[in-house]
Design a protein around this nucleic acid. Structure first.
Lengths: 172, 172
DNA sequence: TTATTACGTCAGACTTGTTGACTTTCCAAC
DNA sequence: GTTGGAAAGTCAACAAGTCTGACGTAATAA
C-alpha cells in the first residue's frame, strides 16, 4: 500500500510531502498538538468540576447567542441526551440561560449569563494565549497554510458548519 | 482583554492574523478538523469493538516495536491502569505481543503480531487517505505551515517526544 | 540486604458518550 | 377544533475511557 509518489512528478514540483512518512508525521503532529491545545482549558475546567463537553457548549453558545438546542446539537455532533446532561448542569449552576423561543415556543434559545460569559472569557483566553504564541512563532504564511490544511481535512458538512459561524464583533 | 494588535506594526508586516477573531477561527478549525481526523479510524474501530485508545496504543507500538510499557505510558500521557486495560484486551485478542525485556527482565517489550500489524495498516491507511487528500488539496507550502503551527503549539516535553519518534523505513 | 523500579491488578469513581422509550409542548395543516 | 408530527425534555441502562488509591510480585540497583 506504500504510495510511490516520491519521485519527480509530471508537473515538475516535488511530491515528497505526500509520502506515507510525511503523512504519518502530520498525523502524529495532530495528535500531540490537539492534546496541548486542550490542556490549558482542561486545567481550569477540572478546578471547577466541569469537563470539555461544558467548554464546547459554552463556546458555541457564546459564539451565537440565542441558538437553539437542536442547532447546538448539530454543531457538536452528539446526542441530545448527552448534551442535555451537560446543559442541565450549566443551567442549574447559572452559567447558561434557556429561554423559550420567540417565533417557535417549542424551541429553547440558549444564552450565557454574566457568570457564564466570565468563564467563557477565562477559558478562551487561556486557549487563545497558546494559539497566539504558536501563530506568532510560526508567522502569517504558516498560519494560512495551517488553516488551509485543517479546512481541507473536514467533511463537506463540517466545513459548511464551520463556514456558517458568524464573525463575532470585536469587543470594544 | 481584546488584543489591540490589528494595526500597522513596527516591522511593517501586518499582524491581522493575530486578532482574537483570527485566533478563534483557528481554535474552531482545530476542533472540527480533529473530529474529522478521527472519524475514519473510529468507524473501523467501532466495527471491531475497539476504541481510540486501542488505536493510539497500536500506532505507537507499530512506530517503535519493542518499546516498553513505561515508554508507551509516557507518550500517551495516561495512567498505567487506563493503558493496562486496553493493552490487556489487545494481548488477549492476539494483536499485541508482550515479551519480557532482554536487558531488564522487569520490562515488557511490546510488539504487534501479524494480526495487529494488519489492523494498524487498515487504520492508518484510512487516516492517511484523508490526510493525503487534504495535503494534496492544500499544497506543499500550506503543509509546511500546518506542521509549523502544530509544532509551535506543543509544550516543550511533547515536542521533544514528537521529535524523538524515529523515522520509519519506507516499506519496500 | 534493602530500597527502588516496572509492571500488573483490584476496587471504586467520574465524564462523556450511546440506545431506547416515553411525555410534554406546541405548531401547522386539515 | 382536532389531530399529526416535530422539538424538547426526561428516565433508565449501559459502555468506554479516564482517574485515584492500594497492593503484590519480580527484578534491578545501592
Amino acid at each position: 500500500m506504500q504510495n510511490k509518489v516520491n519521485v519527480a512528478p509530471a508537473g515538475g514540483e516535488s511530491l515528497l510531502f505526500l509520502t506515507d512518512d510525511q503523512l504519518r508525521r502530520g498525523i502524529e503532529a495532530m495528535f500531540f498538538a490537539y492534546r496541548a491545545f486542550t490542556a490549558d482549558p482542561d486545567l481550569i475546567l477540572a478546578e471547577l468540576d466541569y469537563g470539555r463537553a461544558h467548554h464546547r457548549a459554552i463556546h458555541f453558545i457564546n459564539r451565537e447567542p440565542g441558538l437553539t438546542v437542536t442547532a447546538l446539537l448539530d454543531v457538536l455532533g452528539v446526542t441530545k441526551q448527552s448534551l442535555n446532561r451537560v446543559l442541565r448542569t450549566l443551567i442549574e449552576e447559572g452559567l447558561v440561560e434557556s429561554r423559550i423561543g420567540r417565533r417557535d415556543r417549542r424551541e429553547r434559545q440558549l444564552y450565557l449569563t454574566d457568570k457564564g460569559a466570565a468563564l467563557e472569557r477565562r477559558l478562551s483566553e487561556a486557549q487563545r494565549a497558546r494559539m497566539r504564541a504558536a501563530y506568532r512563532a510560526a508567522g502569517p504564511q504558516a498560519v494560512a497554510g495551517f488553516r488551509q490544511v485543517l479546512e481541507a481535512m473536514m467533511d463537506r458538512d463540517t466545513l459548511r458548519q464551520y463556514r456558517a459561524l458568524k464573525e463575532l464583533p470585536e469587543t470594544p
